[in-house]
Simulated assay, not measured.
Amino acid sequence: MGVLYPRLLAEQAKTLHDLYRTLEIAELGRRHSTVHDSSIFAAVGGDRAGTEDLAALRVAVLQLATKQGFPGESTRDARRDFDLQVAEFLHSGMQMVPAEAAAGDVWAFLALVLLPDVAYWRYPHPPGDRVLGTDITRHVFGRLWWRAHLVYSSDDAAPYSALGILGEAAFDQIYARRRALGASPHLVKAILRTWAGLDLEDLDERDVLRGFLQRLLRLSPFMVFDALDAVALDGELRIVALETIDAIRANRPN
Score class of each variant (00 low, 15 high):
A78V: 03
V44P: 01
T66E: 15
Q68F: 02
A111Y: 04
R80V: 08
L62F: 13
G50W: 01
F82D: 02
L64H: 04
A60F: 00
L54G: 02
G45V: 01
S92I: 11
A43S: 15
Q95Y: 10
V86S: 01
A49K: 10
F70K: 07
L28F: 10
M94Q: 10
V86M: 07
S39C: 09
R48K: 14
A102K: 10
E52M: 09
L28K: 07
L90C: 03
S38Q: 15
R58W: 03
L64Q: 09
A56S: 13
G50C: 02
T75S: 12
G45M: 13
L115G: 04
L57T: 09
V44H: 15
D47F: 10
H91N: 08
A87H: 03
L64P: 02
H32V: 05
L84D: 07
D77L: 13
L84W: 04
M96L: 15
D81M: 09
D81Q: 15
S39F: 05
F41M: 13
A43Q: 09
A103N: 15
H91V: 07
G104W: 03
W107A: 11
M94K: 02
L62A: 03
T34H: 10
A108G: 04
A108V: 03
W107C: 05
V113S: 06
W107P: 02
L114P: 02
A78H: 14
S74Q: 13
V35G: 09
E27L: 11
S38T: 01
A42R: 15
L54D: 06
F70C: 07
I25R: 02
G50H: 06
S74M: 01
G72S: 11
D37C: 06
A111S: 14
P71H: 10
A78T: 06
F89V: 00
F109W: 04
T66D: 10
L114Q: 03
H32Y: 03
P98M: 12
E73G: 05
A60E: 11
I40L: 12
S33T: 08
S74R: 05
G45E: 12
A87G: 07
T66Q: 14
R31M: 09
D37N: 05
F41T: 11
F82Y: 14
L90F: 08
G46P: 08
A60K: 08
E27C: 05
W107Y: 05
D53N: 13
D83L: 12
G93N: 12
A26P: 01
H91W: 03
A111R: 00
E88S: 11
A101K: 06
V113H: 05
E27R: 15
V113Y: 08
I25W: 07
T51Y: 00
